[in-house]
Design a protein around this nucleic acid. Structure first.
Length: 473
RNA sequence: GCGCCCUUCGUCUAUCGGUUAGGACGACAGCCUUUCACGUUGUAAAGACGGGUUCGAUUCCCGUAGGGCGCGCCA
């Protein structure tokens, strides 16, 4: 029996929770659930300049919206700085780290020179073996990790396989800044160790860090956690995800009207697969999830597929649940708050009745919201010229013209009309061309199909219908 | 420049040496429908290139090309 799995999601609060981070969190969460372990949340806020409380809120809200939860309170990495410093000092005392008196300018020059001479950009080890007595006065040193210079560091990665990195390509990284604050690579190792993390699942952009961190683990004599470096998500053009593409915060996806379950399903399929299965519940995903089935190559974000999936989830969500989700969505939607103000019991009832027609053709909640515009509109509705002309012309032709016009105004009504007409026609043995009967029935209240009265209200001209009826009959 | 990783239809992917290379999204066409959508049927669409290994390679190895990531007193 091995120890229970502990995963962690460790974002830095320097901005919104982007979609790649959301997927990383999903994988960590899914793996923890699958194995009966737990996922921890750690906020990597050691960069005091860029970390913000707003970003922390955004991350937590984003995860919550995605339906991902974690064990215990979020851990602030910055709050553990004392311990990180302690480890840095320990490394220093053991001769596994040393003080470096190079100034940032020195280092910049070093880099510039290396670049100019087309040499690898690395710290040259100036202070690695220099006698501390040579230290310039008044300069606060940074502490560098004394990384092995020969041999190689191996990362046994569940996704990437066995990755071997020559130690000569890894330089002595700073673990403690000259101002006494720890840096990322040190903090991560100390925290993951102290927090009992058994499995690290993160983006491949951390692969090189994994090597450096492995060296620190070894220097401390700590056990190296299982690693899984998952491929990154690219934009539609194959390049890095930019804001133009999908590098938006997860809250942007919420505002675009995507359902959390659709997002989970889509994100899971991006890089991970279970045979030919495309649409699966989150429970199903958890049951199937495994690290081995995660691919190694980067995947492009495809909004068309997300939309399709989202449409599927919208259609398959029970009306009442969808209505709840819709209401919850409104505050986050552009123009949604204005609608929210008009929602009372009567409106809820209307929305509920309209939902079957509404959800049939909405791929996102935004589309669904747009389709409800009719319900919120002032009566009587203004008709465009085309509609007016059609009415003016009257006659049997009018009916043909009316439907498309209605479509423009409000698809779902047309849907109701169509359904009502069809059923009436069938019930009364009428040919579909003869619509007068069912329409009259609707007008007199014989039909209970919601939307019919609204339709007539839109038309606003019972005479036209009557005329149509005469001709059609 | 150096290191690491990747490469199957336009996109996401299946395939664990032998398949007519499968599915999904998208596209196109038909059906359903007096709108749109849903649904449904079908079509087109892929192993980057070059060498090996093997009776046999998409699958294993090497090289080339292309792409990605990393190389901060950022995380």
């Amino acid at each position: 029996m091995s120890s229970p799995v502990v995963t962690r999601f460790a974002p830095s609060p320097t901005g919104y929770l982007h979609i790649g981070g959301g997927r990383t969190a999903l994988f960590n969460w899914a793996y923890a659930r699958k194995t009966g372990g737990k996922m921890l949340l750690r906020i990597e806020d050691t960069d005091r300049e860029r970390s913000t409380a707003a970003a922390i809120d955004a991350i937590i809200e984003g995860l919550t919206w995605l339906g991902l939860d974690w064990a215990g309170e979020p851990v602030s990495q910055y709050g553990r700085a004392v311990r990180h410093r302690e480890v840095a000092e320990l490394l220093l005392a053991q001769g596994k780290a040393y003080r470096c008196y190079c100034s940032p300018q020195d280092l910049e020059e070093m880099r510039a020179r290396a670049e100019a001479e087309k040499r690898p950009i690395r710290y040259d080890g100036t202070w690695r073996d220099r006698d501390p007595s040579e230290a310039p006065a008044g300069v606060k040193p940074a502490i560098r990790f004394k990384a092995p210079q020969v041999g190689e560091t191996v990362i046994d990665d569940a996704v990437q396989g066995r990755v071997v990195i020559p130690n000569k390509d890894l330089d002595d990284l700073i673990i403690l800044r000259s101002d006494g604050n720890p840096t990322y690579n040190l903090s991560v190792v100390v925290d993951d160790h102290d927090m009992g993390v058994t499995h690290i699942i993160r983006g491949v952009d951390h692969l090189t860090n994994a090597a450096r961190q492995t060296q620190i683990y070894m220097a401390m004599g700590w056990r190296v956690p299982h690693m899984s470096h998952i491929p990154l998500i690219h934009g539609p053009d194959g390049a890095k995800l930019s804001k133009r593409h999908g590098a938006l915060g997860v809250e942007a996806y919420r505002a675009m009207g995507y359902l959390p379950e659709a997002m989970r399903n889509y994100l899971a399929r991006l890089g991970w697969s279970h045979g030919d299965d495309e649409i699966f519940s989150t429970d199903q995903m958890v049951e199937w999830f495994n690290l081995e089935s995660i691919g190694k190559s980067a995947a492009r974000f495809d909004f068309a597929k997300l939309e399709n999936l989202n449409g599927h989830y919208i259609r398959h969500t029970p009306d009442d649940m969808l209505l709840t989700q819709f209401i919850d969505f409104l505050p986050h939607a552009e123009g949604g708050k204005a609608l929210l103000a008009h929602i009372d019991e009567a409106m809820m009832a209307k929305l509920m009745r309209a939902m079957p027609g509404l959800k049939e053709r909405a791929k996102t909640l935004v589309e669904l919201m747009k389709s409800t515009a009719y319900l919120f509109a002032q009566r009587p509705l203004a008709m465009d010229e085309k509609a007016q002309q059609i009415i003016k012309d009257g006659g049997a032709e009018a009916l043909k013209g009316v439907l498309p016009v209605l479509t423009q105004v409000e698809n779902w009504i047309a849907h109701d009309l169509e359904t009502a007409v069809k059923s009436h026609a069938e019930a009364q043995g009428l040919k579909l061309g003869k619509l007068a009967q069912p329409l009259r029935a609707a007008l007199t209240g014989t039909s209970t199909s919601p939307g019919i009265f609204d339709v007539l209200e839109v038309l606003g001209r019972e005479e036209s219908l009557a005329r149509l009826g005469d001709q059609a009959a």
